[in-house]
Design a protein around this nucleic acid. Sequence first.
DNA 1: TCTCGTTTTTATCATTTGTTAAATGGTTTC
DNA 2: GAAACCATTTAACAAATGATAAAAACGAGA
Lengths: 187, 187
Amino acid sequence: MEINQIIDTIYPLTTKAKNLLTESIIETKFPKGHILFRANKIETNIYFIKKGIARAYAFSDDNQITFWFGKEGDPIVSMQSHVNNQKGYEDVELLEDCELYELKTEKLQKLFLEDIQIANWGRKFSELELIKSEERLISLQFNTATQRYLALLKNYPSIIQRVQLSHIASYLGITQVSLSRIRANIK
Amino acid sequence: MEINQIIDTIYPLTTKAKNLLTESIIETKFPKGHILFRANKIETNIYFIKKGIARAYAFSDDNQITFWFGKEGDPIVSMQSHVNNQKGYEDVELLEDCELYELKTEKLQKLFLEDIQIANWGRKFSELELIKSEERLISLQFNTATQRYLALLKNYPSIIQRVQLSHIASYLGITQVSLSRIRANIK
DNA sequence: TCTCGTTTTTATCATTTGTTAAATGGTTTC
DNA sequence: GAAACCATTTAACAAATGATAAAAACGAGA
């Protein structure tokens, strides 16, 4: 997905403000398996996915738990770094060869203070992420694992082809064995 | 908690911007049990809690599930109304007699477009809420019910005195019976 | 095609949580 | 103080999920 479309979908900007923003964005590529963000590190960039898919995970005892997937058009942000300039708790791994748009956090923070349109674009960005996060929270709290799996399939059918089931299981808050049972029962 | 402190904790404003914001805020009171927000309704106000405690819940089949508690200093917002001007899915009930600060969504949206400081205050507001939501999500996905209960007690010890256990149980994503068992095992 | 390594499924048993119902405890009202 | 009401706990059984191990399916290279 092209950066212009990504920006406009969040909050439409005038040409001037959009130029200010796009001037600060560069394109970059990383191979499948690349670790884009590291836990316990302050990340200095945010990204948007032009092409590819990624996951964020953290460790609980010894095992990785995936709590986020990103696909074309989605932002990749360590919120702790972006908001509080603090260390994040997550790794972000690219699950396919990826083309990304890169934007320095510091540069964006500066634009927030200089341009009211970009400040409102940043506000809208967080508002939209917040709504996504709330929906995810409620899905986890309200629905059974089976319901959550079916909802994921419905919202994002191709994820089954693109992401291995062990990651999907931990995203759903269950073990891989449990997801396998659920899949067997659905057929 | 006083409105000045609430505003400043989110993002410090110059006197001029703060006056613009506080001019639009009025104080109001409601008794315990009052339903402040209704599901399937576009809410036109946002609130901050000066004194008291509230919960948001939605229905899953026939039973209410509490997914949020607010106490002194916390905002009460229907994000669907605030961000998308759409109907929300939640009721908000006051669990004690409450003193609230009230702000019209429409007025705030206007200020966002007029004052860059207030736009950045609004951005910070959503960013902070987003971090809270992410933390909650990860707690739900990573931890057992017992761990979540202990964490809640640690973060907010007096909640046990202020909120009945059936609400806390559904907030933790378990039944009241299950919470009762957990409490019995901890002692 | 064969082999090796990885992913996914299946099986078994233990643990946790859900469901329903009854018992206990506390509070309010008359 | 008794009755009525509500919140909380306990009990008993059912269902879902976790843990561990083994089998099966799949894919990438030689």
